[in-house]
Design a protein around this nucleic acid. Structure first.
Lengths: 218, 218
DNA sequence: CAATAAAATATCCATTTGTCTAATAATTCT
DNA sequence: AGAATTATTAGACAAATGGATATTTTATTG
C-alpha cells in the first residue's frame, strides 16, 4: 500500500487542529522537490502530499506552479544568504587575505552543505537560457553581498592573487567544491571508484578551500 | 501556427527518400534534450519532432523512454571518452607531472566544452540516488581510463602533490571548471554580475587548469 | 445569532505523457 | 510474382498533470 492519506472533509480548519502547515514549510518541501526532480519533474500533487495538504490548496496559495517555484527559490536564497553572512568567520584584516579568503570559502561550503538546493537548482537550470535561470541569478545577487566574491575582488585589485578572471575561482568554488557537498549521491558513487580512502566532509571542505587559495597566490 | 509538419503517409520509406534519420542522430538529439530539460522534462514527442520522425517510431526503435535515455548516455559517453583520449596531448615523462597534469586538464575541459551534455546530466542526476545516476557513473568508469585521474593518482602516490583526497581536485575540475564550459548560460549571467572583463573560453580553461595544478603542488 | 468571509477539500477539465496496436508502404526472400 | 518481413505513421488509451470551480467547514463580523 502507498501512504494511506486519512481523508479530511473539506472546510476551513479549526484552530485546535494540529499542523496547519504554514507557507514556509510548504516552500521548504517544494524547493526540495524542485531541486531533486527538476521543475517539470516535480508535480504539485506530489509536493502537496509531502506537505499534507491538497494540491488545490497549494495552487491557490501560490497562484500557480511557477509562483510556487519562485516563492520557494526566494525563501531558499534568503536562508542561504542569511546563514552565510551570520556564520561568517570575521577575521581581522591583519590576518591576511589568504586566511580571510580561506575562512570565507569554508563558510561558503558549509552553508552550501546545509542548504544544497540552490546549487542544485543552478546546476539544473544553468544549461539553458530560461526565465527561471534569470530569476535565480537575479535573486542570488539582488541586494546581497557574498563575502567570498568581495575577497576575490580585493585580491585581484591588490595584485595579491594571480590575474585570473574572478569567474574562475568563483565557479570552481560554487560548482566544483559545491558539488562535493551538494551532490552527495554522485560524489559518493564517484569516490568509491576513484579511491577508497573515505574522508569526512569537513576535511573535503578544507581541502577544497586550501586548493583554491593556494592556486590563487601570485 | 506551430511548426507545420508535412504529413507523410505511413509505410516503410523508400531508399531514395532523404533523411532516414539514423539512430545515431536520434541519440544526439535525445541527449541534448535530456541534458537540457531533464529526464521527466524531455518528452518523446518533442525529441521525435526534433528528429523529424514520429514518436511511435522513436519508442519502437529504443523500446521505451528509459531505453532511449540509456542509449543516448551510452553513445554520449563513448564520444566524450573517445575524443578525450585521442585529443590527449601526450607529453613525455620528462616534462614533469605538473605540465602533464596541466595538459590533461586542458584536454579534459576542451572535451567537456565540445560535449557538455554528460556533465549536465551528472549535475541533474547527482543530487538524488537513482538508477540513472548509477548507470551514468557505471558507464563513466566502465573500461575507461581518464588520463586526468591517472595523473592525479600518480601525483598522490609519488608525493609530488599535497595529500588531498583525489575526489577534491577531480570534482573541482569536472564540476567546477566543467561548469565554466558546460553551463554557458549560467556562467555568462553570473559573469556579468561578478566582473565585466570578458575572457575568451580558452583563457578560462587555461586559468582553471593553472589554478588546480598550482593548488595541488606540495 | 445571522451573515459574510476565509480556508480547506473534492472534483472536473483540457492537455500532455508514455506505451501499444493497427494500418500501410517498401524491401527482401522464395 | 507472391509471401514474408521490416520500417514507418496514425491513432487509441489510461494515467498524470496544472489549473479552475463547486462545496464544505470554520472563523469573523455586525
Amino acid at each position: 500500500m502507498t501512504t494511506e492519506t486519512v481523508k479530511r472533509r473539506p472546510g476551513r480548519p479549526s484552530q485546535s487542529e494540529q499542523s496547519p502547515v504554514d507557507d514556509e514549510a510548504c516552500l521548504d518541501r517544494a524547493l526540495e522537490a524542485f531541486a531533486e526532480r527538476g521543475y517539470e519533474g516535480a508535480s504539485l500533487r506530489e509536493i502537496a502530499t509531502a506537505c499534507g495538504i491538497s494540491h488545490g490548496l497549494l495552487n491557490a496559495r501560490f497562484g500557480s506552479k511557477q509562483g510556487l517555484w519562485t516563492a520557494a527559490v526566494e525563501q531558499g536564497m534568503d536562508r542561504l544568504h542569511h546563514r552565510m553572512v551570520t556564520l561568517q568567520t570575521r577575521l581581522p584584516k591583519s590576518a591576511g587575505l589568504d586566511q580571510r579568503l580561506h575562512a570565507a570559502c569554508v563558510d561558503f561550503l558549509e552553508t552550501l552543505a546545509a542548504y544544497p538546493a540552490i546549487i542544485q537548482l543552478m546546476n539544473i537550470e544553468g544549461s539553458r537560457n530560461s526565465a527561471r535561470l534569470d530569476y535565480i541569478v537575479e535573486t542570488f545577487f539582488r541586494n546581497r553581498e557574498w563575502p567570498v566574491a568581495s575577497l576575490l575582488e580585493e585580491g585581484r585589485d591588490s595584485g595579491l592573487f594571480r590575474p585570473v578572471h574572478i569567474a574562475v575561482p568563483f565557479t570552481l568554488l560554487a560548482h566544483g567544491a559545491g558539488a562535493l557537498v551538494a551532490l552527495r549521491p554522485l560524489v559518493e558513487a564517484v569516490d568509491e571508484r576513484l579511491s577508497n580512502e573515505p574522508e569526512a566532509q569537513s576535511r573535503l571542505i578544507t581541502s577544497a578551500a586550501d586548493l583554491i587559495v593556494r592556486g590563487l597566490r601570485a
